Computed example of a mutant assay.
Amino acid sequence: MKDQAENLRRRLEARHNQSMARTIAVLSGKGGVGKSNFSLNFSIALSQRGKKVLLFDMDIGMGNIDILIGEHSPYSIIDFFENDCSLKDIITAGPGNISIINGGTGLTNLFSLDEDKYTRFNEELSLLLANYDYILFDMGAGITQDSMKFMLCVDELVVITTPEPTSIMDAYSAMKFINSVNKEVPLFLVCNRVFTSKDGKEAIKRLQNALVKFLGLETVALGYLPNDGIVSKSVTKQMPFILFDSEADVSKAIMDIASRYANHSFGGELTLQRSHFLRNMKRYFLGK
């Protein structure tokens, strides 16, 4: 018993002394804006900057990260909850030296965890947080009351929109919903599929102005991605566009976004706080 206690103490001390991964949820108001493609290529862009990155497909039952990379994993988050696999066991190696946990199919109540399942999930996530620099959660399209709880746990939220008015309104509605529950979580904006840099800047500025005017909500613009034909070609080839053609305009743009994020190049807009992901998990899932 003494040896076990000593080992536990050392593990806790090691975890305390290690820096915790930044947790990022990527979301959109509705589907069809390229959210998963952004999550995948953004993860690889961060990895190419020397960071250890885990991409977690949280679009349970509708996940498509494995389709985008053309590799079907034998394991998914379903195996963690239903087959008692550990999170470490279900991690697979992805392209660009990233790690991936797939969403799988058939599980609809991931966010409605009982205390036992929550405790196990929390304990294993805490180990992963010590082993990565970034953990990205590719959320399902839209927001539900249950998925909202999870999004409120992460350190930052990245919202994907396009210049289309309906997409901007969907993104606005999603952030309004988030802000009504938690006014402190940092929000980043990325505009996808822009035809000109002017379109991208104007779309983001319109959205930011509306958020400030009606909600008093400040957000950070990470950048925009051009409507590049390379993207559809890479999807057909089931290869991330940043690896399919690293010199393409969209690939350079995602690298710029990753650089801006990783370097905290936000000017005076935002100061990133220490991660409280595990504490938030306990608060929002157990009410403690």
Rank of each mutant, 00 (worst) to 15 (best):
A130D: 15
N131H: 07
I135R: 02
M139E: 03
M139P: 15
G140D: 15
I143Y: 09
D146C: 01
F150W: 05
F150D: 07
C153W: 03
C153A: 15
V154A: 01
D155Q: 01
E156C: 01
L157M: 04
V159T: 14
I160G: 11
T162G: 15
P163T: 07
E164M: 04
E164H: 01
D170I: 00
S173M: 01
A174Y: 08
A174P: 00
M175N: 12
N179S: 08
V181L: 11
V181M: 10
V181Q: 11
N182M: 05
K183D: 09
L189G: 13
V190H: 03
N192I: 00
V194D: 02
V194H: 02
F195N: 10
S197M: 04
K198F: 04
D199S: 06
G200A: 09
E202G: 06
A203F: 13
I204D: 09
I204L: 13
K205T: 00
K205S: 03
K205E: 09
L207Y: 08
Q208N: 07
K213Y: 02
F214H: 07
F214Y: 13
L215E: 14
G216Y: 10
G216R: 05
A221M: 06
N227F: 12
N227R: 09
D228H: 13
V231C: 10
S232F: 04
S232P: 01
S234G: 04
V235F: 13
T236V: 13
L243F: 10
L243S: 09
S246A: 13
A248Y: 12
A248T: 03
S251A: 13
I254W: 05
